[in-house]
């Protein structure tokens, strides 16, 4: 465990060398929120009106959290990194070290998003206050629980994207798979809560990764209750074990097929 903490720490230290890149990402994040803020203003004729159980303020906070989780993740870079390592042969240095490669990917990616998690969260909260004027009804304990569940949501996303990246062992370029995954999360899990979709879809979405990677944490933030928190937490723990096992399985099969370019 200690070595994985060191991997995460080294990644954080490495990212500190170009910390200003994080602030550049705030521009895109703000633009998306301005667009969505206007969309919700158009949908809600009265800010106190409830649509599918959500007020306009809740909807804005909901989308801030889902957008935060997506922006912090930077999944495209993550997926490409494994594919590039396989193509360039740089993977050689990662697979003959005394650690689990999946554990290495997880630890380095957690380190990679650690600073973004802090800065984006602060920025997102400031932006939310600017748009809405006040925080949702959360006390310190519930806020901490939401932070933990948001962090676990990112861990699950990392594992999902790592599993997609690991498919590069078989097909060299896994970017089409990542594209499908990102659009799935964006369309069904970012802009609108699950309650906005037809009933038959809600039943499917509640069992999909969207429940644990975007809807769950955002829903808790805007409408916290302990029962939902426990349900989401348990589902996340199951997902983490299942995704880790999936990554290890793909890696175990893929590493035997590896063909390092240039010998």
């Amino acid at each position: 465990m200690k070595k994985y903490l060191f991997i995460a720490k080294s990644q954080i230290m490495s990212n500190m060398q170009y910390i200003t890149n994080i602030f550049g990402g705030f521009i895109g994040f703000t633009l998306i929120l301005i667009i969505l803020f206007n969309l919700y203003q158009y949908l809600y004729s009265d800010p106190n009106e409830l649509i599918n159980g959500y007020s306009m303020h809740q909807m804005i906070w909901y989308v801030i959290i889902t957008e935060l989780l997506w922006s912090i993740l930077g999944g495209s870079k993550m997926s490409k990194k494994i594919a590039n390592d396989v193509k360039s042969g740089n993977i050689t240095y990662n697979i003959n070290k005394p650690y689990s490669y999946v554990g290495y990917c997880l630890a380095s990616n957690i380190g990679d998003l650690f600073l973004k998690f802090i800065f984006y969260t602060i920025f997102g909260m400031v932006l939310g206050i600017f748009f809405v004027g006040h925080f949702p009804n959360l006390n310190i304990i519930s806020a901490l629980i939401v932070i933990v569940i948001s962090f676990l949501a990112l861990v699950i996303s990392i594992l999902f994207i790592t599993s997609i990246g690991l498919v590069s062992f078989f097909i060299e370029d896994a970017s089409p798979l990542y594209w499908l995954y990102s659009k799935f999360i964006l369309v069904l899990g970012t802009i609108f809560p699950i309650e906005f979709f037809p009933v038959f879809m809600q039943k499917i979405l509640i069992f999909s990764p969207i429940y644990v990677v975007s809807y769950g944490p955002a829903r808790l933030f805007v409408n916290f209750n302990y029962v939902d928190a426990i349900n989401i937490f348990c589902a996340q723990v199951i997902y983490i074990f299942a995704c880790y096992a999936l990554c290890s399985f793909i890696y175990g099969k893929g590493v035997k097929r590896i063909n390092v370019n240039g010998g």
Partner: peptide, 19 residues
């Protein structure tokens, strides 16, 4: 085996470039 051997591939990098 990783604990017993060291490897240097002249055309690849194992160091963290920003550290």
């Amino acid at each position: 085996l990783a604990y017993q051997i060291g490897t240097v591939f002249g055309q690849k990098e194992q160091l963290w470039t920003h550290l």
